[in-house]
């Protein structure tokens, strides 16, 4: 019996050790990046694992080299615009597809789902041409337009609209609320968790986007944080303290959102395939 117990406890211990090791590996690069923003190039390359005193110096150099405030402002504006508009457009569409569904709308939904399989890079050339012609290059609208309506968000809202009680719908209609009124006054407040989930994943995707912004934002004063950070490596001599400070500034907002809204994020990732 003691042998069995040993076998059991030994196995347990191994599982814990494995999970602890994997957790360390998962967290380490970010930890190292954050502490490296307080170190100079020599310390970073030498593998120093604790913060030193160079944070202010790195930030000073970073702000002297790059217009960080402007890029941060662009990222915030782009992200807020996409958040508000895409949630509005996709939530009402998902609601419409589910609540008023019939053969015609189901067919349209199926076609929209197909667009999920279209790789973004496959439409990059014509999209850039169209946006050049319309004068959207280097503008907020050029950045946000392709992310305003995504099949993923429409699907997320449609799947969750299934849980919207029919009785509430009927009662609101009897009370004389318009269809739009029902959506705004009944559905939106009731679906707060879904909106939180959609907002979290949209925030992450928009803040972190790189390929499309790199194509459509070509002037230095229109760039976003990820683009600014990527530029830090282009000099002859790379100051890794500055790079890590930049990466930290770019990453902190998403990491903070991750910790506050982890539950919503988890729901969003898994929610669309329910």
């Amino acid at each position: 019996m003691s042998e069995g117990a040993f076998k059991k406890y030994g196995k347990r211990t191994l599982v814990y050790l494995f999970l602890i090791l994997m957790s360390i590996i998962s967290v380490f690069p970010l930890y190292w990046c954050f502490i490296s923003s307080c170190n100079n190039t020599q310390q970073i390359l030498g593998g120093r694992m604790v913060p030193s005193t160079h944070l202010i110096e790195n930030l000073k150099n970073l702000f002297a080299q790059q217009d960080v405030l402007n890029a941060f402002k662009n990222s915030v504006i782009n992200t807020v615009l996409v958040l508000v508009l895409s949630l509005a457009i996709c939530s009402i569409a998902g609601y419409g597809f589910e609540i008023f569904h019939d053969k015609g709308k189901d067919a349209v939904m199926a076609v929209i789902m197909m667009s999920m399989m279209v790789p973004f890079v496959a439409i990059l050339v014509p999209l850039f041409q169209m946006f050049t012609k319309m004068g959207f290059v280097n503008k907020y609208i050029g950045y946000i337009l392709p992310s305003l309506s995504t099949p993923f968000l429409i699907m997320l809202f449609r799947n969750n609209a299934r849980t919207f009680p029919k009785e509430v719908l009927e009662a609101a209609r009897v009370d004389g609320l318009s269809e739009f009124g029902i959506f705004v006054r009944m559905f939106v407040p009731m679906m707060r968790p879904t909106f939180a989930a959609a907002a979290t994943i949209t925030f992450m995707n928009t803040w972190n986007a790189y390929l499309w912004p790199k194509v459509v934002l070509q002037t230095p004063d229109s760039i976003t944080m990820p683009m600014l950070v990527a530029n830090l490596l282009s000099g002859y001599v790379v100051d890794y303290g500055v790079v890590m400070a930049g990466v930290t500034i770019c990453t902190l907002p998403t990491v903070i959102v991750f910790f506050i809204l982890q539950k919503s994020f988890t729901e969003a990732v898994a929610g669309a395939v329910k």
Binding site: S23, I24, V27, V243, V247
Partner: peptide
Amino acid sequence: GIFRTCIFLPCATALVAYSLIFRTM
């Protein structure tokens, strides 16, 4: 919860950001 959070955390990093971190490492 702690293990899940740790293993899920890399998802919060921008692709550009982690590329630069790995390049530096």
